[in-house]
Design a protein around this nucleic acid. Structure first.
Lengths: 256, 256
DNA sequence: CGTGAGCTTGATGAGGGTCAAAATAGGTGG
DNA sequence: CCACCTATTTTGACCCTCATCAAGCTCACG
């Protein structure tokens, strides 16, 4: 169930396509800004082609002008930048239902690479179609702008983590964010369990910590009975405790 | 000349109003997206009231719904958040010509406080007027969205600094960014000199470093003959050297 | 001329990086 | 089903950057 081989995943995706693979995306935008039924329907038809991207492959390259809007339908992806020194820093996360990049809103080029972390499924939206629909249904554009606004808030929150929180708080905060964001799109299972397709090394690149230290910090969280975490499956044992440990305030994820 | 008392500053502002206090803002948006002369003129009339904000006072409060768009006309401001522990982290900077917050684009509430660092002058734009003008002149809205996109890029770049650069690189990178952004609005003087109304303690809050360490890092930069820095005046002595030290790539500040 | 904000300096130590190697886990081909 | 291989996780030892504490210094301003 966790991290299936890509072929299988794509097969699943195809099988479920008709029942609404694009559903996540519509659900997400609805949560950002309540849409009318006909708007939701129009939105669904906009996502006209979806394709799989393999782990550790780029969904979008740096400096790539946006000819279309890309939406993540399944899996996990991240914004990142490679530094001079073979070092890499992640700067944001793309979850199912999220736009991969907001360059399309201002016809800007993609500023950073977007990379699949686990196996992912990406949907494509033609910009001409989008702006045509957007003219008639401004709520859709408004929802997209709110998505951008939440994205910005996440980036600023990451700045706070890296600038002012220690390792334990950073990791706890990160897990809180993932939990809340995944829950919005219904990807948190019973017992507050969710999939997180990231290695400890990748967590390090996200949180500005070494792999070794990430490992030790995870053990601390385990010892404190706050989480369970192995091979991409995370379980929240004590949500309140963990949010307190991270001084997590989910308001920044709210759209309005 | 550097950090004048507020009364004088406001007086100056009033004196120069007719010659175009709002000029910075129009110039900035023009740099983001080339506007027609009549669009520039329309933009100028949009900024209908400006007022001074004293250092260390909030321009916008957290969770404040945006009833109008605010533009910084003079001075320096920052986005910030106060953490549990009486600790504060800055997450972005507002320079003359910048919007203070982009919540108005998605009718979202302000997510973080915006505080004046030195004495500032703030312009107000009525949202009804803005959207009316925006309907006729979509370039203006496009420019605003590009401003938001640049803002987002700056936030991500700050994530990279805090996550993957050491103190020297962080500071050097920060100064590079300020230099480039101020140059765009014509606020860098001869000899690559500019005003920076921040104490060392505030630099620390921005870069996630202690005051003491900021001080020692500045001394390093001085020793390496890369900058001069005293009472709010910064001079770049060796731009190439400093950009190399920070592995600074100004492309992220480009609008398209 | 005192006072406070900001800058500078020194001493000490903790959080986290780096290096190196062992332990596990999947994943593959025989 | 086993043997092998590689990626990931875990552990230990050592060290460096940067935080903290504390005190002295400078300078603008009342």
């Amino acid at each position: 169930m966790n991290s299936p081989p890509v072929s299988e995943l794509t097969a699943n995706a195809h099988a479920r396509r008709d029942q609404g693979e694009h559903d996540v995306f519509v659900r997400r935008l609805n949560a950002l800004y309540p849409l009318q039924p006909h708007e939701s329907k129009a939105l669904e038809t906009l996502v006209d082609a979806s394709y799989a991207v393999l782990p550790h492959h780029d969904i979008l390259h740096e400096q790539q002008p946006s000819k279309e809007a890309l939406v993540l339908l399944e899996g996990l992806a991240c914004h990142y930048k490679v530094l001079d020194s073979a070092r890499r820093q992640m700067t944001g996360f793309v979850l199912p239902g999220d736009f991969c990049d907001f360059g399309f809103l201002s016809s800007s080029a993609t500023r950073q690479g977007v990379m699949a972390l686990g196996p992912t499924l990406v949907g494509r939206i033609d910009l001409r179609q989008l702006s045509a629909v957007g003219d008639k249904m401004p709520n859709i554009l408004l929802a997209a702008m709110r998505a951008a606004s939440v994205d910005q808030a996440c980036a600023r929150e990451l700045v706070i983590s890296l600038g002012a929180r220690d390792a334990l708080q950073r990791l706890a905060h990160f897990l809180c964010e993932m939990y809340h964001r995944l829950r919005i799109v219904g990807l948190v299972g019973a017992g507050a369990q969710f999939e997180l397709a990231m290695t400890q090394a990748e967590l390090g690149e996200a949180l500005g910590l070494s792999t070794v230290h990430i490992n030790r910090t995870i053990q601390q969280l385990r010892k404190q009975k706050l989480i369970t975490m192995s091979q991409g499956l995370v379980t929240i044992l004590d949500a309140a405790g963990r949010e307190a440990a991270a001084s997590f305030d989910p308001r920044y994820l709210r759209p309005n």
